[in-house]
């Protein structure tokens, strides 16, 4: 039985870790390129999930169409947030604390718009209409279609993002912004255009991860918020600047929440009620012992901020 539990939890860690990675990369991007610890990211994730729900009911149950439209809608919401709230604060040269508060405010506004919408159209706790199917089965574990949607999609997107950042002019511009904002402006990088594209990218990542998270669980206005601490823990493990560090951080958090939690429950009877404490414990330990996270492990790679 222990072997089955262990394998099952490892598969789950991989699945959840992939989703955390998608969400956390968005946070790392906003933090390093836009200098914003964006808590509204949680609501971009939820917007993506609600878009997926509506698309699956009214347009198509094809996951590619669902993910595509979720990415577009969440991107638009992210960009509108930038234009209407974050950019005016930037122009006032507001401190990071004010920007942090502004991100909370944006998140709350979006959340309560979602609450009102869900209330009006009875969209609380709904399932995205993508049926669950068993695609691979052995004596010890089962892999569903959700696993094969989540893990490869995340890996492909992470690779695509890495290529974008490392092998395209836009990526170089984004990294220049992350490295030295004023210098980037002086050497003629179109700062505002890069910011717009970054917000679109961040929104798309959140939208896709929200849709996938919704397919895996169910959709409610709080779904992004309840997962955001784990995602921030992953981003903090990545030092809030390193892509590979963030991805590794995402899998470490998912492994802690799933495999380690499962083993502690099975061997020592530790209640699953302690599971929400795990991201907090990770954040505190990392900030105390290794504030730079995993950044140092990936010095040779191209991180966003060198």
């Amino acid at each position: 039985m222990f072997e089955r539990i262990l394998i099952d939890s490892l598969i789950r860690s991989m699945q959840v870790g992939s989703l955390y990675a998608l969400m956390a990369l968005g946070i790392t991007l906003t933090m390093s390129v836009l200098k914003l610890p964006n808590f509204a990211h949680a609501e971009f994730v939820t917007v993506g999930a609600y878009t997926a729900l509506i698309v699956s009911r009214n347009v198509s149950t094809n996951p590619i169409i669902i993910l595509g439209l979720s990415a577009i809608v969440a991107s638009v919401v992210a960009l509108v947030s930038h234009i209407t709230v974050f950019r005016p604060f930037e122009k006032q040269k507001s401190s990071i604390y004010i920007m942090l508060l502004a991100s909370f405010a944006v998140g709350l506004i979006i959340r309560y718009v979602l609450f009102l919408t869900a209330d009006t159209f009875d969209l609380f706790d709904q399932r995205i209409q993508v049926p669950l199917e068993i695609w691979y089965r052995t004596d010890n574990f089962i892999l569903s279609n959700v696993f094969f949607w989540v893990v490869p999609t995340s890996i492909v997107l992470v690779i695509a993002l890495s290529l974008l950042l490392n092998a395209t002019p836009l990526g170089r511009e984004m990294r220049a912004l992350a490295d030295n904002f004023d210098l980037a402006r002086v050497i003629g990088i179109p700062v505002e255009r890069v910011k717009w594209l970054t917000w679109l990218l961040v929104g798309a990542l959140a939208g896709i991860s929200g849709a996938l998270w919704g397919i895996q669980t169910s959709v409610s206005p709080l779904m992004g918020w309840v997962v955001i601490l784990s995602v921030f823990a992953a981003a903090i493990l990545g030092g809030l600047s390193s892509f590979p560090g963030t991805i590794l951080g995402a899998y470490v958090v998912a492994f802690s929440e799933n495999t380690i939690m499962q083993v502690l429950n099975f061997q020592f009877g530790l209640s699953f009620s302690f599971k929400p404490a795990i991201p907090f414990i990770i954040i505190v330990i990392v900030l105390l012992i290794r504030p730079e996270g995993f950044t140092q492990f990936f010095k040779s790679n191209r991180s966003l901020k060198r």
């Binding site: 539990i5 789950r12 309840v226 599971k275």
Partner: peptide, 24 residues
């Protein structure tokens, strides 16, 4: 009994533990 914290992001770990309890 397996207790889970209110408003969980997902319940897959708890489901695995429940499955183990049922098997036992």
């Amino acid at each position: 009994t397996i207790a889970y914290s209110p408003e969980p992001p997902d319940l897959s770990g708890e489901a695995t533990a429940l499955s183990a309890d049922v098997a036992q």
